[in-house]
Design a protein around this nucleic acid. Structure first.
Length: 878
RNA sequence: GGGUUGUUAGCUCAGUUGGCUAGAGCGUCUCGUUUACACCGAGAAGGUCGGGGGUUCAAAUCCCUCACAACCCACCA
């Protein structure tokens, strides 16, 4: 590239694609150098895999901005750095999308075998693949593309099967008939965590169950009268005096011919409803447990299609639960058994995808016994082996793990990793009933990884594959292992990961499971740090959702403002774990910074071109105050960036860089360089700010680097800046000069406003060595037409500075017009002085506050007193 | 019902272990075409840091309490 490309404004679209291609082609995204065993000298991170067939949303944008900034920073520090990208088959999500397509085309899943469906979805995803990866590239992600892991890759499946087999052998996997959360629309069970509870209006009905001995009745409270066909008991609290005489009696179950017992159980709450509750173990989680305690039968009355089963009798069978409810209520009313109806609000479980009410149904499923896994995870968490950002999430996670229940890992959707379990054929369908002893003694279930086969033969016995697939979180739990090829590379120099960065909303679903699984398989925590980002809300702090129509597409922002601007904007003001509103203004500010940096580079390149003679110097020196000052400021900035990166405080790092580059480097240093032109220093300092900003704005910094005449190689693999050398006393002096210039400018502006004139006044100075030594710079920065010593005869308006003797050479008339402004200023300083005096007049302050603080206060009082004195003198002159 | 986190300028948000005059971006107002940049420069206005109480020489920061908001968890029929 050449300088001709240094156009006036930075146009990201002209460079980004080209720059990204150059990075990718150079191989710089792959880890460089020998990974060392000490994890502090290498950096590994894996991408939470975006949905392979989807588009990136704003949350991905934040994820990439964070992860890529970390990655680039560590790469610049010279550490072997490995950022592994991923793509998710997104089992249920993708299945829902595909099934919708299928339905649009007038088909249903039931027309196809599982193999056919799997193949069809595979093709469907294949068509979409690539979009997501292109979008990641547009965001500038510097990940090792050749190591991209798809969640259905062969090595992932192999790893998952190995773990599952180990769990099966360890007795941690079991087949159980339990109540599961079942979506009757999607025909699949869910883990507890996948179910959404919402408060809804409903009714609490009271229904009379007559005693079989004819001695009255017992009235139960229920929100689901249609499940009464599945009732197996009525429970009352053992402490409830009202019902003591009924315990052990039988009642007639209304609308049926069955009778059921009255039992006691703590579950019955005497305070709620009538205090008597019907027990339906097959359709209610509480009742299921009551049933277990009392060894009650489970009567299933609702099918997986959400319709009433034949067992409920001809007049109800086949009805939906809602229709059945209406009919039951009507019939009860007619029978005179419905005692009351009251509106209530209660939590109802819904499918998180389609909103269908979740039906608790009995189903045979595979479960993972989580007790051991959770206990081990808690042990390592309590030993502080993983550092959390924000720190508070660690305890939140421990609390969750303490209450963790067994994990249902069976899903009835074809798009996923098949569960490698086979059932003895005779038990599977009964059609091929076992005849011999050998068959009858064979185990009911066997583990076998040959899931591509529908049937297998083991020891002469025929087995049929379980049709279900794994919960995606079961395989995702292996993510850090599979992405780093933990098994093949053992001992793996990149495992455990340095950090896991992901959304705070999947702390339980994912982070918890990665920790449990990592410990179970490898014996080590899978990562040393966890950074959890919050939700990106819309501009008004509302959650983004398609239905609300407030979704912001990151790609549109990238197209409009550039990738760097988006990255700078999305990180601004965002801290770990917090849900924060998205601000397009912050992206605009990012865009402006990129343009500013671009013009800084144009200026520096211009000076370098002009002063060609002084080129090719290896090192810089500092020859005047501003140069020492900028070296000090840049070095301070570097330290703040390093600390901020260590502590994962990205918003602060960006803020620091922004103000250093703009408010210090451009506004003061470059302005003063228009007089002095220290070429080697300009070059060194520009390189430094480019390097420090590169993790956050990779494209513009690299583009500039490529366009500068003297730089070599690529910025992405440049060296992190080392310490700057400077004279601290000079730097301090420049700081005072800055204050003086600001005050002069401010006074000039106030004068012009008071007097409606333009401010072509000269500047005079008295006994002021600092100004005397730097008069040219003062004149230039203050934009005054002249500067001179007042030769012991001050005139005009004294500038209100405590440490400098400066006068603006203005006519007396103007000073008089300025009188009110001066009076105001005196009052303001007076107020400040009062506050300081108040502090000093408190003897306990002097006594207890640190000495340097007290000393500082004393100095300030002296300064303010001097200043006020001078201002008053000025007023008297007028 | 339990838990977590918020409430700081017109808007969106920073503010590390308590300590100089509480900051930024965007917006607003005034002035300005000084050849790096109008995606700019200079200057300015704007906040009793949600309310109340407490600890301290000193509180936006620590403690208590109230109000409001968001999110997460939860089987109360």
């Amino acid at each position: 590239m050449s300088k001709e490309k240094f156009l006036k404004a930075y146009e990201p679209g002209n460079f980004e694609t080209e720059i990204y291609a150059a990075w990718e082609a150079s191989g710089v995204f792959l880890p460089k150098g020998e990974p060392v065993e000490n994890h502090s000298n290498r950096f590994s991170i894996v991408m939470p895999p975006p949905n392979a067939n989807g588009n990136l949303h704003i949350g991905h944008g934040l994820t990439i901005a964070l992860e890529d900034a970390m990655t680039r920073y560590h790469r610049l520090r010279g550490e072997p750095t490995w950022y592994v990208p991923g793509a998710d088959h997104a089992g249920f999500e993708t299945w829902v999308v595909y099934e919708r397509e299928l339905e649009k085309a007038g088909h249903t899943r039931f027309e196809y075998s599982r193999e056919e469906l799997y193949a069809r979805v595979w093709d469907f995803v294949g068509e979409q693949r690539g979009n997501m990866e292109l979008q990641l590239r547009a965001l500038g992600v510097s990940c090792a593309w050749k190591d991209l892991t798809f969640t259905l890759d062969e090595n992932v499946v192999r790893r998952v099967y190995t773990t599952f087999e180990k769990m099966w052998q360890d007795g941690m996997v079991y087949r159980g008939e339990k109540l599961v959360n079942f979506c009757t629309k999607h025909q699949t069970a869910f883990a507890d965590i996948e179910v959404e509870h919402e408060d809804e209006k409903g009714y609490l009905w009271e229904i009379a169950y007559p005693l079989t001995d004819g001695e009255g009745e017992i009235v139960v409270s229920t929100t689901r009268p249609e499940t009464l066909f599945g009732d197996v008991a009525v429970a009352v609290n053992p402490q409830d005096e009202r019902y003591k005489h009924l315990i052990g009696k039988e009642v007639q179950l209304p609308l049926t011919k069955r009778t059921i017992p009255v039992i006691t159980d703590e579950h019955a709450n005497p305070e709620y409803g009538t205090g008597a509750v019907k027990i339906t173990p097959a359709h209610d989680f509480d009742d299921f447990e009551v049933g277990e305690r009392h060894d009650l039968p489970r009567v299933t009355v609702i099918g997986f299609d959400g319709k009433m089963l034949p067992i409920v009798g001809e007049s109800y069978a086949g009805l939906s639960t809602i229709d059945c409810r209406e009919k039951v209520l009507a019939d009860l009313r007619e029978a005179g058994l419905l005692r009351s109806e009251a509106e209530i609000t209660h939590a109802v479980a819904h499918c998180y995808k389609c909103g269908t009410v979740i039906e608790p149904l009995l189903k045979e499923q595979w479960f993972v016994d989580t007790e051991r896994l959770a206990a081990e995870a808690i042990r390592h968490l309590e030993a502080d082996e993983i550092k959390f950002f924000p720190a508070s999430k660690k305890q939140v996670l421990i609390n969750y793990l303490k209450g963790l229940k067994d994990w249902n890992i069976s899903r009835q959707i074809p798009w996923g990793i098949a569960i490698p379990m086979f059932q003895r054929a005779d038990l599977y369908d009964g059609s091929d009933a076992a005849t011999g002893d050998a068959e009858q003694q064979a185990p009911e279930w066997v583990f076998d990884a040959r899931t591509e086969l529908k049937e297998i033969e083991v020891g002469g016995v025929r087995y049929v594959r379980d049709e279900d697939t794994f919960d995606t979180w079961f395989s995702s739990a292996h993510w850090p292992m599979v992405c780093t090829n933990w098994e093949e590379n053992f001992p793996n120099p990149f495992y455990p990961l340095n950090i896991m960065e992901t959304g705070a909303d999947i702390l339980f679903a994912w982070v918890a499971r990665m920790i449990m699984m990592g410990l179970y398989v490898t014996g080590e925590v899978p990562f040393y740090e966890v950074y959890l980002h919050g939700l990106v809300l819309d501009a008004h702090g509302k959650k983004m959702s398609k239905s609300k129509g407030n979704v912001i597409n990151p790609m549109e922002l990238v197209a409009k403002y550039g990738s760097d601007a988006f990255r700078l904007g999305i990180l601004r003001g965002r801290s770990a774990g917090m849900n924060q509103a998205f601000s397009e203004d912050a992206v605009v500010a990012g865009r402006n910074l990129c343009n500013k940096l671009w013009n800084i580079a144009r200026f520096v390149q211009g000076v370098v071109d002009e002063e060609a003679a002084s080129l090719n110097q290896d090192d810089y020196s500092t020859d005047n105050l501003g140069e020492d000052w900028i070296c000090r400021e840049l070095d301070e900035c570097r330290l703040l960036v390093e600390t901020g990166m260590r502590e994962q405080r990205f918003a602060e790092v960006v803020e620091t860089l922004y103000s250093t580059i703009w408010d210090k480097y451009a506004d003061w240093f470059l302005e003063s360089q228009k007089l002095y032109k220290n070429v080697p220093l300009l070059q060194a300092t520009l390189e430094m700010i480019l390097t420090m900003l590169h993790p956050f704005a990779p494209f513009v910094t690299e583009t500039i680097w490529q366009n500068l005449s003297w730089t070599e190689g690529m910025l992405i693999s440049a060296e992190w800046p080392s310490r700057m050398k400077y004279d601290a006393i000079s730097a301090e002096k420049f700081e005072r000069l800055v204050i003086a210039v600001s005050e002069v400018r401010s006074t000039l502006q106030a004068l012009s406003e008071a007097h409606k004139g333009h401010f072509g006044y000269g500047l005079l100075y008295g006994e002021d060595a600092l100004v005397d030594d730097n008069s040219l710079l003062m004149q230039y920065l203050c934009k005054v037409p002249s500067i001179a010593s007042c030769e012991g005869a001050p005139r005009g308006l004294r500038v209100a500075l405590p440490n400098n003797e400066l006068y603006l050479d203005v006519p007396e008339k103007v000073v008089r017009d300025y009188r009110s402004a001066l009076e105001e200023r005196i009052l303001a300083v007076g107020r400040e002085l009062d506050a300081l005096n108040l502090r000093m007049s408190n003897p306990r302050y002097v006594e207890r506050a640190p000495e340097e603080l007290v000393e500082e206060t004393r100095q300030q009082i002296a300064e303010k007193e001097g200043l006020i004195e001078r201002l008053k003198g000025q007023l008297e002159v007028i």
